[in-house]
Design a protein around this nucleic acid. Structure first.
Lengths: 338, 338
DNA sequence: AGAAAATGCGTAAACGCTTACACAAAAATC
DNA sequence: GATTTTTGTGTAAGCGTTTACGCATTTTCT
């Protein structure tokens, strides 16, 4: 605190410029001087003030992560696992993660504006669950490199990069696997989040050549308890397999199956989605649709950094769209039709 | 970018001081002027640069969160849930979370020094799993307000505040509950993390008046698979109940029980620890030891903020220790001894 | 050996805000 | 109504770095 660069440089007997060069690695400086300075800094405990530095450089090495949801803030396991991957990817590229949990109301946008316009962030990753909330948020960003992570189709609002997850590639694999094991009557427990996935499910069923029975499609659930309830409703309709739009719903279903005295997978097959770490830990372990989280994370971070580079070399910015597929993870919650 | 405070203040027809006052809320300014300035700022899109501001204020409104582990970096569900609570608590107090995943080697300490000495952080929360790694890390912090979060006894290295979780209060409740349901022969699957909990387990057993049989205590496991393996080893010794040092281990045990044809809780009772969100979602749902995560988080954040206040009012800093107890969460994985 | 190029370092002007201090105008006091 | 107090605003000196530019000194080239 007491020790600033001018004090310190005097102690070492060089100019502030030289000290700055020693720390930044930029500019011309002899190896000998650099080492002497760094050594001395360690000895007396001098560390350059990051704010002064950032004020000059206009770089912060911080990337923001925003979760923007139309409904109440959801920071669930799914998002936590994603956040973790993003943090890892950021770190690998020398960036720190600035995690911002979405707050209620429109203060969200104000906050985002403050951070991006105020130059606190080098870039921003926004995870959205739907058009409405996301688009509004994006507008408050303007010049700052941004990427939108979504699992719904998203066409750019501005110059943002979009990283889009296609949950249906993995779902299709799952349905095909079920079909190959003799299942024809496949039910679906949909999620309320993100606009639901049942339209995609129906499309896939048709593509695979299976009949879609709306009676065994349940719309809009969220929680473990919803999964239980939905399964309870569905079971009397005698599907031989049920797909669930999230792993949590599948766990609820699994639980209710056991409560109703049905064995999984002997009596009924169950598939989740998201491949949360816990999906492998249920009994029986849950077949699910895996999400290449680390790839999503890496793509997002890399996109920001390359936008930053382009900015530096004055290249024009353009929006781009990366679509990343999901994949099927077979485990023991499915089996041949009984 | 193009618009700085002096440009902007000219446009509005006031001085930079007045603009600064309008944004910061500090200093004397008439309501009318403030509103006019804020309104105009919104119109033309002016946001104060945070770095310039922080350079002056020496406050960043950012709190760092470090995980320091002696072994390989573990950022598991347990830590994720804790991190989430800390992020929430920080946000509630107007602080942003700077999440730093621990990296390999000693670059960790360098990084920490850089952030704290470089004034990038208002305070730092270090989650440690043992004395050795933590103490070394703490030494690199010096003046910056720090709190250590731990589940092992920790005596201060410097002026840090320690928030200590006592996992044994909840464990004792669990053992007492088991005892009251007729269980006497209680096994224990210990964790390898954090130095283990079996000593505490034995103490509790003795306090409750139950015999400790070392043959049904298994030391040092980590993963789901370890839980399975440990249960497999333990079952032939016929304990009527098993405590597991983490929920993950308990899930492994639950799974293996089912694999061996044992019913939980009819044939054997099972208790986990940590109360991860998922513990409620197993079949049967897992009795466990709950951790007041939000209280830990709040205590940690509040400690930092109060250290900051004390610093401002020149009060002397002193170390302090908050011990927070855990509690028993009974669910359906336990029942009377058969 | 002399000219040209490269290297190492210092000086000083930014970077964009905050705030102590000064001062005029308005409000409160007697 | 004169004096004191309070309020609102401006001036300008920081905050602690970075880096363009300039000048020696050293190295390279012919």
């Amino acid at each position: 605190m007491a020790l600033d660069i001018v004090e310190f440089s005097k102690q070492v007997g060089v100019s502030t410029a030289t000290v700055s060069r020693a720390f930044s690695g930029r500019g011309r400086i002899s190896d000998k001087t650099r080492e002497r300075i760094l050594e001395e800094a360690r000895r007396v405990g001098f560390t350059p003030n990051v704010h002064a530095s950032r004020l000059n450089l206009k770089r912060t090495s911080q990337i923001g992560l925003f979760y923007s949801f139309s409904e109440e803030p959801i920071f669930d396991y799914y998002n936590m696992e994603l956040a973790q991957e993003i943090a890892k990817a950021a770190e690998k590229r020398g960036q720190a993660l600035h995690l911002e949990l979405s707050r209620s109301g429109k203060s969200n946008e104000d906050r985002l504006r403050q951070l991006t316009h105020g130059a606190a962030l080098d870039g921003i990753i926004v995870v959205v669950d739907g058009r409405a909330s996301g688009a509004r948020l994006l507008e408050s960003i303007r010049g700052c490199p941004a990427v939108v992570v979504t699992s719904k189709p998203w066409s750019p609002v501005g110059k943002e990069i979009v990283v889009e997850l296609d949950v249906f590639t993995g779902m299709a694999e799952a349905v095909r696997d079920l079909a190959s094991q003799g299942h024809e009557r496949i039910g679906f427990i949909d999620t309320a989040a993100n606009g639901g996935k049942s339209a995609g499910f129906s499309r896939i069923m048709r593509e695979v050549g299976l009949r879609v029975d709306p009676k065994i499609i349940i719309e809009g659930s969220i929680s473990f308890a919803d999964g239980q309830k939905a399964f309870h409703q569905l079971a009397p309709q005698q599907p031989s397999a049920i797909l669930c739009a999230t792993d949590i719903l599948a766990m609820g279903a699994l639980n209710e199956a056991s409560g109703m005295g049905l064995r999984v997978p002997q009596d009924i097959s169950l598939v989740g989605m998201d491949d949360l770490a816990f999906a492998a830990y249920t009994t029986p372990s849950l077949s699910t649709v895996g999400i290449p989280r680390s790839q999503i994370a890496k793509t997002a971070i890399d996109s920001i950094l390359s936008q930053l580079d382009d900015e530096e070399s004055e290249k024009p910015r353009a929006s781009a769209r990366h679509v990343i597929g999901s994949y099927y993870v077979p485990r023991s919650s499915i089996g041949p039709r009984s």
